[in-house]
């Protein structure tokens, strides 16, 4: 969908900005919001570019940097921390060969840390896209990554 179609479908109104930004990001191809899209959104909605940028940069789910097809969000809040999220982070970094906020060269994964995902019952936990993965161990993490790679046929 183009920016103007998205605005049309959600309603051209400031209140809908977050939802519009979600949609723009989802249809960007690289999980990010491009400056061209912000310029166009500014024109269509009459909100200044600085204001849109300031708003989206406030929320952790939005990014202006291109990201991978799958965004891994590993929780590092205290309940996951005490269950060993730091080890999981190490395992992920090693498995993917990237650091926090890095993207794998094949653009498959971006690794981010996140505040509590609301799935602390299965701490340590992470989300990949919309899926939750809990009770993580280094071994499990490796299998999860492999299975996603496999399902993508790579």
């Amino acid at each position: 969908m183009t920016v103007s179609e998205i605005v049309e479908s959600r309603g051209n109104c400031r209140e809908n900005l977050l939802q519009i930004l979600h949609d723009i990001q989802d249809s960007s191809g690289d999980n990010s919001i491009h400056t061209e899209a912000i310029d166009e959104l500014s024109r269509i909605m009459g909100i200044t570019v600085a204001d849109i940028t300031g708003t989206l940069s406030f929320y952790t789910m939005f990014s202006m940097k291109p990201r991978g097809r799958h965004i891994i969000r590993l929780c590092d809040s205290p309940p996951c921390y005490i269950m060993g999220s730091e080890n999981i982070l190490d395992a992920l970094q090693k498995k993917l060969g990237i650091k926090i906020d890095g993207t794998t060269p094949d653009k498959a994964f971006t690794l981010e840390t996140s505040s509590c995902l609301g799935t602390c019952g299965v701490a340590p936990a992470m989300m990949i896209g919309d899926e939750v993965y809990g009770n993580l161990t280094a071994d499990k993490v490796s299998k999860i990554i492999d299975s996603i790679r496999k399902s993508e046929g790579r």
């Binding site: 309940p79 509590c116 019952g121």
Partner: peptide, 11 residues
């Protein structure tokens, strides 16, 4: 919004 770490009752 339930963001408080360790809280997922609302979910």
């Amino acid at each position: 919004d339930e963001g408080e770490p360790g809280t997922f009752k609302d979910r």
